[in-house]
């Protein structure tokens, strides 16, 4: 008779404790949530609203801003540029980062740690500074790779830029700036792989190549897909690299190379925030669509 209420009490306490825990977890994510709403979600909603607004009168403008954006003669070329860049960069990132990470996993631990830090270093430099640095690397008169450029017969910077192609140049720039961070992330995932599986494979006679391609990569696919999604999302927004090409001189300037640059020009050169918002919204929509496709096609959130 006496034990019943005690049990109930204990249950109640457990539930209260659990409630407190949930409350605490919300408290912990609250600062992030507030910032996300202020600087992430709100601007997106604001841009979405702007894209349906007449930039002069301020009233509802229907799809006119989208129509203007699509009719802009620069858009198809910019879309091709960005598309080419994203393909090159995403492939470069996925293949490059995975290969480097697996190779680091196969070598001596201390050397791997040192190398990972070295790979990470360029990522610590802001992308605008990286571009300026690259402008020197790409100049056959001062670059340490001038021998290579002369081999192709490239005598000055515009030769190099048009020889490699802007999409390729930007992809290489972005790869060196961002791959270090991803190598660290993927290395973390590799370290978390169950040791017994790898041990078992090794006992069954798998060599390093088989170990990497048959055992490790299939277990890492989730991180690799995530890398792909984020690379696509940031790749579609390319802005700094082409924008700073004007530093080379007017003959290499690329003011309308990417979609985001066009959005920038609409807002800040023309003052048409409506079309600018429409272009940005389209880029966001494409980015979300690709992410969703990747998530559903790879059953990203399915748990085994």
């Amino acid at each position: 008779m006496m034990s019943q209420p005690v049990l109930l009490d204990r249950d109640k306490m457990k539930r209260a404790h659990r409630r407190r825990e949930i409350f605490a977890s919300y408290l912990f994510i609250a600062p992030y949530l507030v910032l996300l709403l202020m600087f992430g979600v709100f601007p997106v909603c604001y841009a979405l609203g702007l894209s349906f607004t007449d930039a002069i009168e301020g009233g509802f403008y229907g799809l006119n801003n989208y129509a203007s954006a699509i009719q802009d003669f620069r858009v198809p070329r910019a879309a091709r540029n960005v598309g080419g860049y994203v393909v090159i960069w995403v492939l470069l990132t996925i293949v490059g980062v995975t290969v480097v990470t697996l190779m680091l996993d196969a070598i001596n631990k201390r050397a791997a740690n040192v190398l990972r830090t070295v790979f990470f270093l360029p990522g610590a430099v802001t992308s605008s500074a990286v571009v300026v640095l690259w402008l020197f690397l790409l100049d056959p008169t001062v670059s340490p790779f001038q021998g290579l450029y002369h081999l192709f017969g490239w005598e000055n910077r515009i030769n190099v830029l048009s020889g490699v192609g802007f999409a390729g140049v930007f992809a290489v720039m972005a790869f060196f700036a961002h791959s270090g961070g991803w190598i660290v992330v993927l290395s973390g995932a590799v370290a978390g792989l169950p040791g017994e599986v790898i041990e078992a494979a090794r006992i069954d006679g798998a060599n390093r190549w088989q170990l990497a391609t048959r055992i490790k990569v299939p277990m890492l696919w989730r991180t690799i897909v995530l890398m792909g999604i984020l690379a696509v999302a940031s790749g579609l927004q390319i802005f700094v690299e082409p924008q700073l090409m004007s530093l080379v001189g007017p003959s290499a300037a690329q003011p309308d190379w990417s979609i985001n640059q066009l959005a920038y020009q609409y807002a800040f050169a023309v003052g048409d925030f409506g079309v600018s918002a429409a272009l940005s919204t389209v880029v966001l929509a494409i980015s979300i669509t690709i992410a969703l496709l990747l998530i559903f096609c790879t059953k990203f959130y399915h748990t085994n």
Partner: peptide, 18 residues
């Protein structure tokens, strides 16, 4: 002008020049 003649020249002629 609200257009850039210099950019039009560069964009069109630089690849041809090269």
């Amino acid at each position: 002008l609200r257009i850039s003649v210099d950019q039009a020249i560069s964009k069109t002629f630089t690849p041809i020049l090269l």
